[in-house]
Design a protein around this nucleic acid. Structure first.
Lengths: 122, 122
DNA sequence: ATGATTGTATTATATAGATAATACACTTAT
DNA sequence: ATAAGTGTATTATCTATATAATACAATCAT
């Protein structure tokens, strides 16, 4: 999976959110070890310091913890994982409706819009 | 309407998108004059240079044009306005589904999620 | 023991974004 | 004519990001 980093937002934030999604969606299972800072930085074609900053953010949220000399691991607190996943989803729904209403669409129009998008995966 | 500017994204971009929405949703009617750079900067509690940069972006898109000494005006090209509005809407829908799928939700789960959000305005 | 790998910290440099303070040429209203 | 208000441009300064190049103590495999 490519990392798709833009430059209209801080890179460390984009990385943080990307890994956050991989965590709460189960790409990195609870308790499992994630690649080292240097490995991830190499994979994302980013400076190790930037990756470090992104990972520090995830620690602040409690999603990962570090054992200093053996690596970083995903939390085993599965309720936190599910809770975070639902919070992110709710946020996206809220933001989506907010954006659409700012564009002047009514609730009905938004639902109609979604129906039409039915088959439009990708 | 407050401007609600974050600092996790360039301010001039947030301003640009905000005004863009006001334009395509009709808050600023086609052909009408928008407040001066200095007025808008004051209203948004932002430096005039920053507001200038945001407005320049909108000119690049053709949504506004400036008469140099008399002010800035909304385009009369209503088809461009409608087209831009629909493009923005499509983008939001696409991004929304993309985010939700990255969180591991299926298309059906997403639709179910939206139904439950039915009454949840605000 | 040794060497490689861990997270973490430090220092320096470069760039983008934002603010501040002006300045200019040109309308418009008075 | 004069004064105020347009968009636009310039210069300087400050901060946040990002990169680069190291460094260190602790673990782990060998």
């Amino acid at each position: 999976m490519p990392w798709n980093l833009n430059n209209d937002r801080p890179i460390y934030l984009q990385i943080m959110e990307r890994i956050q999604k991989d965590i709460v969606s189960g790409v990195y299972p609870p308790g499992s070890r994630i690649p080292s800072v240097r490995e991830l930085a190499l994979e994302a074609a980013v400076n190790p310091n930037t990756m470090q900053k992104a990972l520090s953010e995830l620690e602040r949220c409690g999603l990962v913890y570090s054992l200093r000399t053996s690596g970083r691991f995903i939390t085993e607190d599965e309720s936190l994982l599910k809770q975070t996943r639902m919070q992110l989803a709710s946020g996206h729904i809220r933001d989506f409706f907010h954006h659409m209403e700012q564009l002047g669409f009514t609730h009905e129009e938004i639902l109609e819009f979604i129906k039409e998008t039915e088959g439009g995966g990708k």
